[in-house]
Amino acid sequence: MKKLLAMLLALVMTLALAACGGTTGTDTQGETPSGTNDAAQTEDKLAVALVVAGTFGDRSFYDSSKAGVDRLAADFEKIDVKTIECNNENHDQQLRNAADSAKIVVAVGWEFYNIETIAPEYPDVDFIWIDNATSAPVSNVLNITYAQNEGSFLVGYVAAKMSESGVVGAVGGEDSATINDFIVGFTQGAKHANADIKVETIYSNTYDDPAIGKECAITLNDKGADVIFQIASKCGDGVFEAGAERGFYAIGVDSDQKYIADDVIICSMMKEVGTSIYDAVKAYVGGDKSLWGTTWVADMSNGYVGVGYGDEGATQQVSDEIKAEVESLKASIVDGSIVVETTR
């Protein structure tokens, strides 16, 4: 009898959990985790599903994508937005769940590499894959990759100009091609500003543990780095904390993170994930589907990658002089006179 009761209670607990995690419907859309969805069938509504590999709340990459679809929902009445967070697991299944109930599926994160085989199973659904590209073009997949190396080049230049110790650092989330693309750009930019600069890098090997991010930043600071670039999602919060405690500067990533710690973050490497999703879906709504089946590189020339110095009124550590130099470098990258290395 007691065992039965225990089992029942355990079941209740699991169900409670199921209710907690999983799909979060935004806006007017109800919470339908999978299966057929009425919204997909009604002619006038366009269901857009945003699937992120991690979770929201990073105030960077994923939150930027969320801001993009939220803007879509606000600007286009016929667009219904639904979001799914994979929490770093079941990427394929969540992608299918999204495709079951939406017309456009936006997959955010390099982890969705099985999109190559999943997308052809859903010929009526159009996919957008953020941050990576299929090995061969798939007719209903639009790949959007970002020239993060170009943006990182600029912040690397700023870092080297701001450094007094002659050492700058970067905290990467893991030793992977995408993260290293930031790092090579950062290193090249730093060397461009000061050929003698030392660039120290460290990988946190996790994206969700700010305590580890903090330790990584302190380790780099112990090595003399006084400007540290964070490329590690939520670990970055720890990098900013360490900067405030130890008195070094930090550089934000993906979104303009200046507002998080005004006096620590001198600038941010901006990757306009949200804007690019917005523009792609806007083109789709306007009837232009020519982008699908291709890889769109969002780079500095089309304005999707750049440097942010925070909103107006934010404390500015970077002098106008350096900012002007950054602008001229930007022009040189766009016209091709500076070629930034890449790992892709």
Binding site: T55, G57, N87, D208, D209, P210, A211, D237, E241, E245
Partner: peptide
């Protein structure tokens, strides 16, 4: 940490 919570931070 100086007062911050992140999902899954027990790591």
């Amino acid at each position: 940490l100086n007062g911050s919570f992140v999902e899954g931070m027990s790591n």
